[in-house]
């Protein structure tokens, strides 16, 4: 498999399964886009790109790990590993959403320890938070991601695996375009901002308890 053919395959995989990627990414992403600060096309694009960058970082790290490990990981390459990674992904995502709510919705960004005071800059809400959410969401294992990991494993090259995942991510991008319409809706109905804030907490709670801790302790 050449680099080009692998990238084309990844791109097509992204295009054909991107809907499911978007369906999974939307629950943590949409409340973050609508619940705080200014909601403009610019902030929406910025936050979405940071979110996708986070996703890509996890993909690239996972791809590199699998590419370096090669076929030695094939014995762990089963649904149990996939569901465990997903569970940790849910828990991490929940923690990010809760931290984001506290820092950027409740505005408790100052931390004190003795005489020292540290503050999280408000601009981090547009970059660090979505990036962290993207990092955790990237751990969710779906069939398309699983297939991509196989491609990386076969390639045996960190560079190729990164290129494959970049092509895959590009393939999924069109499915994220509808989020660009959010500012037009949110700015028309004032209540929607509060709705998004509550939804963020509910999504975090569900990810933490029902998709995270319960499967972690009782299903595996």
């Amino acid at each position: 498999m050449t680099l080009i053919s692998g990238m084309i395959e990844s791109l097509l995989l992204g295009l054909s399964t991107g809907l499911f990627c978007a369906m999974y990414c939307v629950p943590p992403l949409v409340p973050m886009l609508c619940g705080r600060g200014e909601v403009t096309v610019r902030t929406t694009v910025t936050r979405t790109l940071w979110f996708l960058a986070g996703r890509f970082t996890t993909y690239a790290i996972m791809g590199a790990l699998f590419a370096r490990a090669g076929l030695i990981v094939s014995s762990f390459f089963d649904p149990v590993l996939a569901s465990k990674l997903s569970v940790f992904g849910y828990i991490a995502c929940a923690l990010v959403l809760i931290a984001d709510y506290r820092l950027f919705i409740q505005g408790k960004r100052t931390f004190r320890c003795g005489r020292c005071t540290a503050a999280v800059p408000s601009s981090a809400g547009d970059s660090a938070s979505p990036f962290a959410a993207g990092l955790s969401v990237g751990l969710h294992i779906c069939p398309a991601f699983w297939t991509m990991l196989f491609l990386c494993l076969q390639s045996g090259s960190v560079l190729s695996s990164t290129a494959f995942f970049a092509a895959f991510l590009v393939g999924t991008l069109p499915f994220f375009l509808p989020v660009l319409g959010l500012p037009f809706v949110v700015n028309r109905v004032a209540l929607l901002r509060r709705v998004a804030q509550f939804a963020q907490l509910l999504v975090a709670g569900y990810f933490l308890i029902f998709a995270g801790l319960i499967p972690l302790f009782f299903y595996q």
Binding site: V30, R194, F198, L202
Partner: peptide
């Protein structure tokens, strides 16, 4: 009342998003 109404719609949004993500009626 206003907060409660917002919460109600948030529950709807949350349930729709989660149903989409997990493809089951959570």
């Amino acid at each position: 009342n206003r907060e409660i109404r917002a919460f109600h719609f948030a529950v709807l949004v949350f349930l729709i998003l989660m149903t989409l993500a997990f493809m089951s009626s959570i």
